[in-house]
Design a protein around this nucleic acid. Structure first.
Lengths: 190, 190
DNA sequence: AATCTATAGTAGCGACTCGATATCATCAAG
DNA sequence: CTTGATGATATCGAGTCGCTACTATAGATT
């Protein structure tokens, strides 16, 4: 009984996503490129690398490389050699990239969700997070959660400083803005 | 406030679907082929045509034609000239097609949903349906709802008969099984 | 220091997907 | 019997993405 309802929900998710995606070549960006832009807008500075992005979207590095090249050519993202690791590349959105994100076709879906959940979209968010966690676990992937809910996050370790929080794993100070970002290393607090 | 939660939910839906889809070439079927199989398993006999399928998945007829050819070559679906309309083709799953559906990769997602909604997946289903309705309306598409909730559905118009129900639009008798199928013509009851 | 192994990223190839167009057959209307 | 609309298919091409191979760097081992 429960399983049939769950199956029905799975069908709906699949169909919803397909419909939301149809006709989505807005701004000349393909879905993978949109997803990369979204990620770059929300990932913290330690997670803005091609490898992290590849893990996040469940794709390969080769594919991500192509996506990033395309974004760079369009002037929406920038690649810069990392100072810490000579092999590594740091990614960032450009001004234009941030502007283009305001045209994100997913905003239409967000409106539909707002309409369809009139009372509490928050409930839907928690439900989806739980489902996503199960899916990620099955795929043996990382959660990529938000920094401030990580078990390595130490709130207000330096009171008064401009970066008052601290990441115990990376041993790095964190600003308030940092704490809201997506982090590759995130492990949910117990 | 509400809109930011809705946006968060939209992100989650997108990511969930992408993860669920990754590595999905099970049984040598691509996502479009899976979706066609699913549709054929759930659509009523008036809606099992290439054109209806194309409308349902929001694709073009040319693309659907290729998908169906592939499915036919694999022995999963059958095409038969329609008796009513010489231009039209009637689709059906084969035995093998029904068997293969039991390997549907979406079943994994269904399990994740069952895990993530432990208490009431039914609530999620109604929420998703409402969202989907909004999306379809925005795309100016048809709802493709279930037969028995259609305003043309007349329950038990012929009591005792093997096909006791009736469709006022097509003027056709309907069995109990028919009434649970997806119908292209469906219009939600007022 | 020298070497070895692992990792970050890129390049290029190739399979595949899918939409656009053109074509043909059939139906419905005048 | 035209004319226009519709269902379906074949063909073509753009684009997407994963795989393999390759280079460069980092870190570990001796």
């Amino acid at each position: 009984m429960t399983i049939s309802k769950a199956l029905e929900a799975a069908y709906l998710v699949g169909r919803l996503e397909r419909l939301a995606r149809s006709g989505v070549t807005v701004e000349g960006l393909n879905p993978a490129q949109w997803e990369a832009l979204r990620y770059l807008a929300r990932a913290n500075r330690f997670s803005r690398t091609p490898a992290a992005l590849a893990d996040y979207v469940g794709s390969t590095r080769g594919t991500i490389s192509q996506t990033l090249i395309a974004l760079e050519q369009k002037g929406l993202a920038a690649r810069r050699a990392s100072a810490r690791d000579g092999r590594s590349v740091e990614l960032a959105l450009t001004r234009r990239g941030e502007a283009v994100l305001k045209q994100d076709p997913l905003l239409h879906l967000a409106q539909d969700i707002a309409l369809g959940t009139d009372d509490d979209p928050a409930k839907l968010v928690t439900t989806l997070q739980a489902i996503l966690a199960a899916t990620i676990a099955r795929n043996e992937g990382r959660a990529f959660g938000v920094c401030h809910s990580c078990r390595h996050f130490r709130r207000n370790a330096r009171p008064g400083a401009s970066s008052p929080h601290h990441c115990g794993l990376l041993d790095e100070p964190l600003s308030e803005a940092d704490s809201k970002d997506i982090c590759q290393e995130q492990e949910a607090a117990a």
